[in-house]
Design a protein around this nucleic acid. Sequence first.
DNA 1: CTGTTAGCGCCTTCAT
DNA 2: ATGAAGGCGCTAACAG
Lengths: 357, 357
Amino acid sequence: MLRLRELADHLGVSTATVSRALNDKPGVSAETRRKVVAAAQEMSYRPNAAARALITATTRTVVFAVHRHHFPLSVDPFYPGIMRGLEETLAAEHYGVLLLTLSDEDLRAGPGTLPVLQEGRADALVAAGPDIPPQFILAAAGRSMPVILVDNALRETAIPTVTADDPGGCRDATRHLIDIHGHRSIALLRGTPGWVSSDGRADGYCDAMKAAELEPRVVSVEDTTIATGAVALIEVLEAWPDTTAIVAVNDAMAIGAIRQAAKLSRRVPEDLAVVGFDDISWAALSDPPLTTVRVPIVQIGRRAGRVLLDHFEDVITVSSRTTLATELIVRSSCGCDESPAPVMNSSGPRRHETDHE
Amino acid sequence: MLRLRELADHLGVSTATVSRALNDKPGVSAETRRKVVAAAQEMSYRPNAAARALITATTRTVVFAVHRHHFPLSVDPFYPGIMRGLEETLAAEHYGVLLLTLSDEDLRAGPGTLPVLQEGRADALVAAGPDIPPQFILAAAGRSMPVILVDNALRETAIPTVTADDPGGCRDATRHLIDIHGHRSIALLRGTPGWVSSDGRADGYCDAMKAAELEPRVVSVEDTTIATGAVALIEVLEAWPDTTAIVAVNDAMAIGAIRQAAKLSRRVPEDLAVVGFDDISWAALSDPPLTTVRVPIVQIGRRAGRVLLDHFEDVITVSSRTTLATELIVRSSCGCDESPAPVMNSSGPRRHETDHE
DNA sequence: CTGTTAGCGCCTTCAT
DNA sequence: ATGAAGGCGCTAACAG
């Protein structure tokens, strides 16, 4: 590998000059700077990361930490999507992203025991998901390493945050059922309280119901899966048999509810309208196609990357809590006609993947 | 952060002694070694990664490279799962995993233009997926950086490889249709040739058919999605109307075929048996539940990690091509009775996730 | 067995 | 505007 020294010798200047030129530091004539930059480009010189890290005490690396169980093995690649967005924007500035999957044991032991975080290998930590405990996050933030949260938030902290507009999205979905389809008896299917995005979605539902002067009907179950969605629907219909519409806090529960409705011989959407949340790949392919709220997964990662980049470039930020807009995707489980047949390309990239911020 | 120097001062020994003790190098008495290790543990000392990298010229970091389009946005988190397995086993040895998502442009320009690979930030490259072009891989291997392929292979190269037993899996699935269900007219739905795993699966199908002295019936389509699965089924039934069973090279195509069969009023599995490949999360939840071949996704990553670890520890390996066993998951789309009702926990970790190698 | 010394590749004062 | 020299934290030769 080409060293700075060799590049300097080649040009007949000192290493200091080359370093200054390449790092946009003052003290080099425009002429020499041009020459140096050209030569570096030409010989495809790249500074050794270790040497640079040693002296600057910055690594140009960010750790993306996620609960091990939530990384790949969920219904939809939610966190991998965020990670990809993060990598995309950071890579453009020559930053790297290190994956760190956290076991329950890691979470209990705290960040102090994790080699990657202890060896000074990263400049910042992106903690993804609501199942990283606050004490872990606070401990990490206390180690003088910038921390940023995605799909999570901590009250009464200055820790930067990037989330989707969960309340807004769920409000939109609920309103759609009320305003467009005239439903008055709408129930919410949710998991147990405590997770930020889940709570936010419930809030959005309640807001919309109250604004329309309707009584909220909420059923909480242990988990937010297809199985619990089915169970929750049964509970709803026992408690409020006249329910005509369902808002589920995620697509898995919505699909579970739809399946259960079929077993109970209730037609969707004629007898029971259902809307979900997330817009996982399978939402469009369920029967009937699921009306849901799209979460801008990749954009969450991109935005987190931008926040970090700003931070690294000393853009002073007192506090930073970004919430990204969601989008109501109207298909037919709400009672609407699905106008254009959906393109069922489920393995290629989605069309909306580009970030138009 | 605690420095080696401070630890040495604290113990009243030289830095060299501490270094030797901590790195299991000879030249330290058992007694001092014990003391040093204890103190390091006690004060939770960890060597600075940059300093160590600078002198040892190794970074304890591995790059996981994937095509950007295949990272999160496919039907199932295949590559994220591999990455997680990789991270799991490497983290145990204090190695880190850097994500690198490759755009088409990156692939064209080659590894020489990628900062992460040029700055000496990694000791090895894991290239995932068949859509990283051979020339890219060869160029990377030529840069004196160890390269290992997962879910891909290159003929006539010594590049180590970890793949699933695609031919074996598809042979098993085909045999199941022949031996258990007595089918004689079985068609294969596949994508265009060229991708290693896809080709391997097709080979397995053909082997099983020939072994049973049956005529292969193969339909190739552009892509392997739900949409193309439907199209492929139509083609099959046009060419061979008496077809009674379908083998699809992945679950998406299988599900597409099942949906198309419903539209054509063919019952699955009574009129048409269908088996898939991959065992994506939704396979168990399709209607009818899909019989398929499970690919040990996380284990592929773990094994790749092991191969690298061996390599780093100077275990000399002339060549290394690992293929991991697949498992036929019998549900009901093949005509079997699905005995126990499936647990529909689709968002939690799967039960079989543990690696029992 | 242990300590001293030098240097990995780069950035950054300090001179010039 | 440029060059020389020192040091980031660690390991690896060399002495003792």
